[in-house]
């Protein structure tokens, strides 16, 4: 649905994104990166609001810049405030529905539907100026969905939402993604992203650092061995036993909790295959098994912060 080929965008001497090549298919993909990584530039290139300085950006196999045929099939929720305080939520979404081409006869019905989807029906006729940040966010999401787009680009869509709102919107994005739509969400809250998807695009300083399934990416990071913590009453014994295996690089006993041992390995698959056999054979009673760096945060830390 979306493809970038060696796409770069400079603002004078400042690099927005640099030589990015990637393809995004249907499903929910998270766009991650620290501030200034180029996430917003990436989204603006895809939504056709910027033209790449070099390289090529394609959406539905067409160049999106100022391309109304592409815009018709894209829903975009920008990160920044983009609302008129004087208008009501309903009139704002209705206006954008009209701009998106929703026929007059169906417009009110469709606006009601999307306002319902983002749980804003009750406040739709109030002025936007009186909305909380979360309500404004919901209205921005509603306008992005009103024309039933195939690609939905959401820049920090969970900002300002309360926990219930975050859960509702996350569920909505997941539903959209399961309908063969492409949902691209940027966020800096890794925990929330992890709840939504395993497919990530990780950017740093304008460059694409990683793309794909977060666990596969983690498995490929050789520079940082996988750590696994095991809590058992015979931690010292277990440590000694595990060190017999060549793929175990180290075993460290926790100074604060004598029942916990943390091992490092470059072959997590072999380790997870052998561990149950060892536990059963030697009668260890495992209370807890945790892999503290086999998650999005670890990937982010290792790839972005080095």
């Amino acid at each position: 649905m979306i493809s970038l080929t060696r796409a770069s965008r400079w603002y004078g001497q400042v690099i927005g994104i640099n030589d990015v090549t990637c393809t995004i298919q249907a499903g929910l993909t998270a766009l991650l990166g620290p501030n200034g990584a180029g996430k917003s530039t990436f989204m603006k290139l895809v939504t056709g609001q910027l033209r790449p300085t070099t390289g090529d950006v394609r959406v539905f196999n067409q160049r999106p810049f100022a391309n109304t045929h592409v815009f018709r099939r894209i829903g975009y929720c920008p990160e920044i405030e983009a609302l008129y305080d004087d208008m009501t939520g309903r009139s704002f979404v209705t206006m954008l529905a009209a701009m998106a081409g929703i026929a007059r006869a169906k417009r009110a019905e469709r606006v009601d539907e999307v306002l319902g989807m983002v749980s804003m029906s009750h406040a739709a006729d109030r002025r936007i100026g009186g909305y909380s940040k979360g309500m404004r966010q919901r209205i921005k999401i509603a306008q992005a969905l009103v024309h039933d787009p195939e690609i939905i680009i959401l820049d920090e869509p969970l900002n300002g939402l309360d926990p219930v709102g975050r859960k509702e919107m996350t569920a909505l994005f997941l539903r959209l993604a399961t309908e063969n739509r492409c949902v691209l969400v940027s966020s800096h809250i890794l925990y929330e992203v992890e709840q939504m998807t395993r497919q990530i695009i990780l950017m740093d300083r304008g460059r694409l650092r990683a793309m794909g399934d977060v666990y596969q990416i983690r498995a490929l990071i050789d520079a940082h061995p996988h750590r696994v913590s095991i809590t058992t009453s015979r931690a010292r014994d277990l440590a000694r036993r595990l060190l017999e295996f060549p793929y175990i690089l180290s075993a460290t006993l926790d100074s604060a909790d004598a029942r916990q041992v943390t091992i490092e390995t470059r072959s997590p698959d072999a380790f997870y295959d052998d561990l149950p056999r060892i536990v059963l054979a030697d009668g260890y009673r495992v209370e807890e098994l945790d892999s503290p760096d086999n998650n999005l945060e670890a990937v982010f830390r290792y790839l972005v912060k080095g």
Partner: peptide, 23 residues
């Protein structure tokens, strides 16, 4: 409990002509 299921829009779409008038 709000009905948050996603609903499709299957109605007609207007052409771009005179869309400036909305602005």
């Amino acid at each position: 409990i709000a009905d948050l299921t996603y609903r499709h829009y299957d109605g007609p779409l207007n052409s771009r002509a005179f869309r400036f008038w909305i602005v």
